[in-house]
Design a protein around this nucleic acid. Structure first.
Lengths: 117, 117
DNA sequence: AAGGGATATGTCGAGCTATGCATAACCCCT
DNA sequence: AGGGGTTATGCATAGCTCGACATATCCCTT
């Protein structure tokens, strides 16, 4: 028997839109918070700017909430920062995700620890 | 704000093999148990026989365990049934998955109920 | 006035996954 | 012996997602 380990993926669906929010978008918000720009956030996460931008647009459209405030031009060229709502989502989803992560580990050991040895 | 609902996906990785087991393979085992053949199981799940067969092969190879006993020919043309090990995996993973499912619901309400309203 | 750096978007191609198609082997039954 | 229904497997194709490009716009700084 090979060594096994559990993995999971979490996300949210709106009625018309699949993948309205999720782990990837959450990591993006987190990176935006620490980096201060979408460009830098995409570099940090090793995804294309094109995708980061598209993800952000999709999420905001799906949730109907402005998660970030964006600005073009200026001394630094531009910037993207989280709004208060954005921070709320970042934190709330983070707590949500963490609880699932912990449960996956404990439930894994409890139910499959014997078989997957 | 649109109506949102949480979704999740669970799976197991072996060291060399991604997706050794998971929700899809678990549903396949379950369908095999009730249907008695891979052909019927794939029809029930609305996936191609080709995929069902490939998934089963991949899982058994990755886990190094015979989950099913297959037979060609015969009065019914052939059949596929779960072995004892297969039933153990089906049940154990089912319990594992159910616990995660419940936690997703409660954690969702707890952490995101207010925001996602 | 020109440049720099970031946001904003459309488009084409690569890569991966699932599906469809084709074919073979197998075994009980008529 | 032949047919039916299932397992077994390769291959070619369709679909979808992501990344790479190519531009355009914006505004502060030099």
């Amino acid at each position: 028997m090979k060594k096994l380990q559990p993995r999971f993926k979490l996300w949210l669906n709106a009625q018309n839109i699949q993948g309205a929010f999720g782990d990837g978008k959450w990591r993006l918000l987190r990176a935006i918070q620490t980096e201060g720009s979408l460009q830098a956030a995409s570099r940090l996460l090793q995804i294309s700017y094109r995708k980061a931008w598209g993800d952000l647009k999709k999420t905001q459209s799906a949730l109907g909430v402005a998660l970030v405030a964006k600005q073009r031009g200026g001394k630094s060229g531009g910037q993207t920062v989280l709004t208060d709502k954005g921070k709320e989502w970042l934190d709330a989803y983070g707590r949500f995700r963490k609880q699932i992560e912990q449960t996956v580990q404990t439930a894994w050991a409890k139910h499959l620890g014997r078989l997957a040895r």
